[in-house]
C-alpha cells in the first residue's frame, strides 16, 4: 500500500468520524441544489412528488416516505430505513458484474455481482427523478470532490458567492466523501453519483438530478467500481423521453 493511500484512508476515517459526530452543512445543503443543478432543469417537475414509499414491515403496508418522516426516522434510529441499507440481494440480469443499474423509482442503485447477485444501495434522487434515462459509463472518480455552485444558485443565494471558484472537498461539502462522474463516450454528462451531508434524505426525491448516497455507501461503491463501468439509468415516468 502506498503512503498516499494510507494517508487517504486516515484522512477518510478522520473525516468520516467528524461527519458522524457533527450535523454539518445543514443550511448549505438545503439551499444548494446538490452539485448539478446547472445541468438539470431548474423548473421542478411538480407532478413528481418529493416523497416515495417504503414498506413498513410491522404494519405490513406501504407508507408515504416524506422528508418529515425521513428526518424523524433518521433522528430516532440514526439510520435510514432498512430497505435502503447496503445489502447483497438476488439479482438476475444479463449485465456483466461491475455494471451499475440505477432504479430511481425505488431509490436503489445496484452494483451487479457474479452469480446472479448484486449489492443494493439506497439512493436519493432529484425532484423530477434523475431527469433522464440511458446508458453511460464511469468516466472519472474523485475522493472528497470539490463543489462549485452554479451561477444561478449564487444569484439566488449571494452567501454562496465565496464558493464561486469552488468549495474544497471535506465534511461540509454537499458532494460528500466521493464523486463518480458519468460520461457518455468521452463527454462528461455533468451527472454524478456522490455522497451527501444529509444521510436522512436517502430514499427521497428532493434537490436536483444527481444520485446521492450516504457517505459510507459511496465510499464502498467507489472502491468497487471501475473506470469504464457501464451505468444504466432506468426510466422513471416520462424521464426517458428527455434522453441524455
Amino acid at each position: 500500500m502506498g503512503c498516499s493511500q494510507m494517508m487517504n484512508r486516515e484522512l477518510t476515517a478522520k473525516i468520516m468520524n467528524t461527519l458522524r459526530a457533527r450535523a454539518v452543512a445543514r443550511r448549505l445543503w438545503q439551499t444548494a441544489i446538490v452539485g448539478c443543478a446547472l445541468i438539470v432543469s431548474l423548473a421542478a417537475h411538480e407532478a413528481f412528488a418529493a416523497s416515495s414509499k417504503i414498506y413498513d414491515q410491522q404494519e405490513r403496508r406501504w407508507i408515504e416516505f416524506t422528508p418529515e418522516r425521513a428526518k424523524a426516522f433518521y433522528k430516532r434510529h440514526n439510520q435510514t430505513p432498512a430497505s435502503f441499507s447496503r445489502q447483497v440481494v438476488p439479482f438476475r440480469t444479463a449485465e456483466k458484474p461491475g455494471t451499475i443499474i440505477i432504479d430511481g423509482v425505488r431509490h436503489f442503485l445496484y452494483l451487479v455481482l457474479p452469480d446472479k447477485k448484486a449489492i443494493r444501495y439506497g439512493i436519493g434522487v432529484g425532484r423530477e427523478g434523475f431527469g433522464w434515462t440511458g446508458i453511460v459509463q464511469v468516466g472519472r472518480k474523485q475522493e472528497w470532490p470539490r463543489w462549485t455552485p452554479p451561477k444561478e444558485m449564487i444569484e439566488r443565494d449571494p452567501k454562496l458567492e465565496k464558493y464561486a471558484n469552488g468549495m474544497p472537498g471535506g465534511p461540509e461539502n454537499p458532494l460528500g466523501a466521493r464523486a463518480i462522474y458519468l460520461f457518455e463516450g468521452s463527454r462528461d454528462t455533468l451527472y454524478r453519483i456522490h455522497g451527501t451531508t444529509e444521510p436522512w434524505s436517502i430514499g427521497l426525491n428532493i434537490s436536483s438530478g444527481c444520485i446521492r448516497m450516504n457517505n459510507d455507501d459511496v465510499v464502498d461503491l467507489y472502491q468497487r467500481v471501475q473506470i469504464g463501468a457501464k451505468v444504466i439509468v432506468l426510466f422513471q415516468g416520462a424521464s426517458l423521453l428527455k434522453g441524455v
Partner: peptide, 23 residues
C-alpha cells in the same frame, strides 16, 4: 399508458430491477 422508447439494454435492466423488488 405512456409509451416509452429506449435501447433494449435499458428495458432489460428495468425488467431485472422490477423482478428484484416485485414491482
Amino acid at each position: 399508458m405512456q409509451l416509452l422508447e429506449a435501447q433494449e439494454t435499458v428495458a432489460m435492466a428495468a425488467i431485472d430491477a422490477a423482478v428484484a423488488v416485485d414491482r
